[in-house]
């Protein structure tokens, strides 16, 4: 799908604040006899930071995988900008505008930080073998743009000074930042962060919060999956809570904090069945 390369990329894609960009519509997913997701519905609105939380095993990652097209739901569907994601190839979903990071870091280890990000920028490039062979003006323009854009994004996440180091040799925190930069490079309309604070100390978490806000302020919509309540409360606009594959609450951080069902879920109270 050819897409024009903008010389000055607008960092604010599709500006209709408040309109839902991703809808999870009554999604049920069964693995064999196990129901991993049970009639989950919520949506993510343009320009917000949505938190998806829940205790371990609540189905966060499964839900995430449905949203990013990795799993096909048994019933219901996930729609991105109105069209269903089921059955699409993963790289197509990326090109549609959903990008993600990984809970366990998965960078291209033998490539430099810059090259890692360039792979992301390439998602919208049209260069093939022939154009690479003949170094056509268009190819050179795309290549130059990819480099420039990659540097900008490294700057945005604050690791520009490490552009030419190998991904594998970056410190842990910078690797997480690099993952965010790489995901942003695909020009997503929705950025999904899968436990971005895993393994961080409190000081690093604060910096991460700042980064996530900065990313949102640059015009991206952000979905954060996290089980660290403090981080989620601090950064999100809205929160969806899952437990045992069902949505048990949805609302602003303040509402969630006081929701008895959520408290029960996190404290492990037994009689939370009818709370939803």
């Amino acid at each position: 799908m050819p897409e024009l390369i903008k010389d000055t990329p607008s960092e604010a894609p599709a500006p209709t604040p408040g309109a839902p960009i991703l809808e999870v519509d009554n999604v049920t997913l069964k693995f064999g006899g196990v129901t991993a997701l049970d009639g989950v519905s919520f949506d993510i609105k343009q320009g917000e930071i949505l938190g998806l939380i829940g205790p371990n095993g609540a189905g966060k990652t499964t839900c995430f995988n449905v949203m990013t097209g990795v799993y096909k739901p048994t019933s219901g569907e996930a729609r991105f900008l109105g069209s269903s994601l089921a059955g699409r190839k993963r790289f197509e979903i990326t090109r549609l505008g959903i990008a993600r990071t990984f809970q366990n870091i998965r960078l291209f280890r033998t490539m430099t930080a810059l090259e890692n990000v360039m792979v992301g920028v390439d998602a919208h490039s049209t260069t093939g073998v022939l154009r690479a062979l003949f170094r056509t003006p268009r190819q050179r323009k795309e290549q130059a743009y990819a480099e420039k854009r990659a540097h900008e994004l490294l700057e945005l996440v604050g690791i520009e000074h490490r552009a030419h180091e190998f991904a594998a040799s970056l410190p842990y925190g910078d690797q997480r930042r690099l993952e965010i930069a790489r995901a942003l490079a695909t020009e997503p309309k929705l950025l999904c962060l899968d436990e971005p604070a895993a393994g961080f100390n409190p000081a690093e978490k604060v910096k991460l919060l700042e980064l996530i806000r900065k990313v949102r302020d640059s015009g991206y919509t952000v979905l954060v999956i996290e089980h660290d309540m403090r981080l989620v409360m601090g950064v999100t606009d809205r929160i969806v809570v899952l437990e045992f594959g069902r949505k048990i609450a949805e609302g602003t951080p303040a509402e969630i904090r006081d929701n008895p069902a959520v408290i029960a879920a996190y404290l492990g109270v037994e009689d939370d069945d009818d709370a939803a």
Binding site: F91, R95, L107, F108, R109, T110, M111, V119, G120
Partner: peptide, 14 residues
């Protein structure tokens, strides 16, 4: 190179 390093991640990066 990205594919060689991590095929799934490469796919998800488009």
């Amino acid at each position: 190179e990205a594919t060689r390093e991590d095929e799934d991640a490469a796919e998800i990066m488009g």
